[in-house]
């Protein structure tokens, strides 16, 4: 099982849980498993085109999956996934 660390904004979809676990061979499969158990959370992790939403950053241990293979990045079951909201603004 892979541990997924959630930011405060997404914990409303997990009953307040800060960490959840899910199984999958890739990040995309892990997210599909999350979506089965927590549908509202799953919606936040997938864009309409099936990719990663632009305002979500996902780290597999210390690496941003956008610089790996995105949702196809292979997940070791001992790895940690951390989901972060993109933090941005401007004048």
């Amino acid at each position: 099982m892979t541990t997924i660390n959630l930011p405060t904004i997404l914990r409303q979809h997990t009953g307040g849980a800060k960490k959840i676990t899910a199984s999958g061979r890739t990040v995309g499969e892990v997210f599909a498993a999350i979506g089965s158990e927590y549908p509202k959370l799953g919606e936040q992790l997938t864009s309409p085109d099936g990719g990663l939403p632009i305002f979500v950053n996902v780290f597999l241990d210390d690496e941003d999956i956008r610089y790996l293979d995105g949702l196809d990045t292979v997940v070791d079951e001992n790895a940690d996934i951390t989901i972060l909201p993109a933090v941005a603004g401007g004048r």
Partner: peptide, 17 residues
């Protein structure tokens, strides 16, 4: 690196967490 917009470095966000 803009005077009108910002985006926090995601890696530094992870380190801060």
């Amino acid at each position: 690196h803009s005077s009108t917009n910002y985006t926090i470095d995601p890696k530094q966000h992870l380190a801060a967490i």
